[in-house]
């Protein structure tokens, strides 16, 4: 029996987008094949890993990752500088945690100032994230989009309950936008349609189908991502072709496996290695399912994922 290479060619293609300014700008997406299958298609851009920082000290992060940043995390400008200089971050994701009503309730104006300070000091492409509070994000991200005008950032996340004001702000200030829905391909598609109907260019959109950590629903995220990719490529559905975001760090660095010490759970072995492996494996799985952009926390996990991407490209 003769072997024939079982190649598949798709009509659809993942849209590509860039963010950031000047020679630091980066591109993601653009492939016309399932993840990393270069034998049958083009994979022009490698997945990008952004380093996550926040606008207040990360008191709620487990020690393994919190301690890495203990000398720099008091101030977001210092922290961003550390990511650029020491970690050679290709992109930074700044989460405006302290604007959450339960986490300090800082004002949209405060957030805008933080954004301006970080952008003035650090020229790495920036992803600006709200605190995931539907109403507050609508205010905060509008102010943040204005503060970052001209910097070609990614802002997010626009969700069903607040997308209108955030889309308008991204449109006005020419940013890319993350559209987030909760683990359902139909909701992801619907939100992308609603956003593009407002006149927002689908080529500036990023789909976040909601991440989940290893052992905590990873299989749901994995399959929703695979289905989005197949819909975009095989069925050539334009609403399913934006690059995919995997917001890994925040879903990993709270589960028991990244928190419980070895004396508490001797069967689980070293906490340090376990928690770094947890973030690494979650991120690698997301890449295999179709993620183009990852947001991660621990430098060692980022290092492992970058090396894995080197091998996969």
């Amino acid at each position: 029996m003769a072997y024939v290479v079982p190649k598949e060619s798709f009509n659809g293609k993942v849209l590509s987008l860039d963010f950031g300014k000047g020679d630091k700008a980066v591109s993601i997406g653009g492939e016309n094949t399932l993840p990393f299958l270069s034998f049958e298609g083009e994979v022009p851009n490698r997945p990008l890993v952004a380093c996550e920082i926040q606008d207040c000290p990360p008191d709620d992060w487990p020690d393994t990752v919190k301690n890495v940043y203990k000398d720099v995390s008091a101030d977001p400008v210092t922290w961003a500088g550390y990511c650029r200089d020491e970690l050679k971050a290709k992109a930074i994701a700044l989460r405006l945690v302290s604007t959450h009503p339960d986490r300090g309730d800082r004002s949209a104006e405060d957030a805008a100032k933080t954004i301006k300070d970080v952008l003035a000091a650090v020229d790495v492409p920036l992803i600006i994230l709200g605190s995931n509070h539907i109403e507050k994000d609508a205010d905060v991200l509008v102010a943040a989009a204005g503060a970052a005008s001209g910097y070609n950032c990614i802002i997010g996340k626009a969700q069903e309950g607040n997308y209108k004001t955030i889309v308008a702000a991204a449109l006005a200030h020419n940013h890319k936008l993350i559209a987030m829905s909760e683990l359902d391909i139909n909701l992801a598609k619907q939100l992308n349609i609603l956003i593009t109907q407002m006149g927002f260019d689908k080529e500036k959109l990023i789909t976040d189908p909601m991440c989940s950590g290893l052992g905590y629903g990873l299989e749901y995220t994995y399959s929703v991502m695979e289905r989005i990719r197949l819909a975009g490529l095989a069925q050539n559905d334009p609403t399913m072709q934006p690059p995919i975001l995997g917001d890994v760090g925040m879903y990993v660095w709270k589960v028991k496996e990244t928190v419980a010490s070895e004396p508490d759970v001797p069967d689980w072995g070293s906490l340090e290695n376990r928690s770094i492996a947890w973030e690494t494996i979650t991120a690698t799985s997301m890449l295999l399912a179709g993620t183009n952009l990852l947001i991660m926390r621990h430098p060692a996990a980022i290092g492992n994922v970058e090396k894995t991407i080197d091998e996969l490209m």
Binding site: E257, D267, N273, A277, T280, T284, S285, K307
Partner: peptide, 27 residues
């Protein structure tokens, strides 16, 4: 462990590792 995840997700039926620390097994 990261490379093992590629094999586990993408169709291996047997994955051979060089070490089996408890934390790695759990993950």
């Amino acid at each position: 462990a990261s490379i093992a995840s590629v094999a586990i997700a993408k169709y291996a039926s047997i994955v051979i590792l060089s070490s089996i620390e408890k934390w790695k097994n759990l993950a």
